[in-house]
């Protein structure tokens, strides 16, 4: 996206081209510190991690000197590891799906809204983004715990005779994760829906389309880039989340990030931790490539 911006701003043709060219090449030097920084503190550590994952080893910091793919073989053949990978993928996909379905009607309403409610609703959407996930997870405890608000409502309504377990399990982790990621989805969707001309929807209705058809044939295709981008952001964040599954999942949920943390900090099994991290990054990359393919508009 920003690439287009760069290309369009650097294509200049005018009388002052010569001064521009000389100043443009001077300006280029300004990139040096930033590029060096990223090379040393981003590219080099990732390469080091990749190299580390290609060594055998064990707990307590043992790393074998010879190269091998034994960690990857073990990860992609053992049921325990495949289970973690699968659970992580499902967790990410579920979070993204719930966010997309849940956020769409609200985002549409917010994008089309002209009343005084617009600012407070936007405020409510943005505020969670400023607050650390740890604090937001903490807030779910009084709501979801055994004698929390939700169970009081369930008991009072007579839906169940005993409190339900909402928290410290998969459900808790999922609720917390949706809450952490929902604002991103809403903002992405609002941005695209605002660009859809309401006249298109009116035209469809005048031509006899039902509301469902308007949604299916007009709104959904036009909002696809935002939907895909939002889904990607949420999926990538959810498959690599450490804090929310750790706090609201209790000890019952084992996802990639928790596994990486366990290997790296508790067992000191660095090669296996590195392998898990590289696989998480590969999954994020695969999701990104898929999204780029899907996100391209059909025109």
């Amino acid at each position: 996206m920003s690439q287009d911006v760069v290309l369009s701003t650097s294509a200049i043709g005018s009388a002052t081209t010569r001064t521009r060219l000389s100043s443009a090449s001077k300006v280029s030097w300004l990139a040096l510190p930033g590029v060096l920084f990223l090379t040393v503190f981003f590219v080099a550590p990732l390469c080091y991690l990749l190299a580390l994952s290609m060594h055998g080893g064990g707990s307590m910091g043992r790393v074998d000197p010879q190269w091998s793919l034994v960690n990857y073989q073990r990860f992609l053949s053992d049921h325990y590891y495949l289970g973690i990978l699968w659970d992580t993928g499902v967790f990410g996909a579920l979070t993204a799906l719930i966010c997309a379905i849940f956020a769409f009607p609200f985002s549409y309403k917010l994008a089309r809204m002209r009343t005084k409610w617009r600012t407070p609703l936007l405020f409510i959407t943005v505020l969670p983004l400023l607050i650390s996930a740890v604090i937001r997870n903490l807030g779910w405890i009084p709501i979801l715990s055994e004698r929390g608000m939700l169970n009081q409502i369930v008991l009072a309504a007579g839906l169940r005779n005993e409190p339900l377990q909402w928290i410290y399990n998969y459900t808790g982790a999922l609720i917390g994760m949706v809450h952490v990621e929902l604002p991103f989805m809403v903002l992405m969707l609002v941005a695209v829906i605002r660009k859809i001309d309401p006249a298109l929807e009116e035209a469809a209705i005048n031509l006899g389309a039902t509301p469902w058809q308007v949604f299916r044939r007009v709104i959904l295709p036009l909002s696809r880039p935002g939907l895909v981008a939002g889904t990607l952001i949420v999926f990538m964040a959810a498959i690599s989340a450490l804090v929310t599954p750790a706090i609201l999942g209790g000890k019952r949920v084992m996802l990639m990030a928790l596994y990486i943390d366990q290997q790296m900090r508790a067992l000191l099994n660095y090669p296996v931790g590195a392998t898990a991290a590289i696989l998480t990054m590969a999954a994020a990359l695969a999701a990104m490539l898929l999204a780029m393919k899907l996100g391209r508009s059909r025109t």
Binding site: V6, S10, S28, V35, L38, F42, M236, A257, D261
Partner: peptide, 27 residues
């Protein structure tokens, strides 16, 4: 520099600069 300069290999530098967004924070 990215917006104004003429960088050799500017596509690669652009990718490098947005790449951290595609890498999970835990990694």
């Amino acid at each position: 520099a990215l917006a104004r300069g003429r960088l050799p290999g500017s596509a690669a530098i652009n990718s490098l600069c947005i790449a951290p967004l595609g890498v999970p924070t835990i990694v």
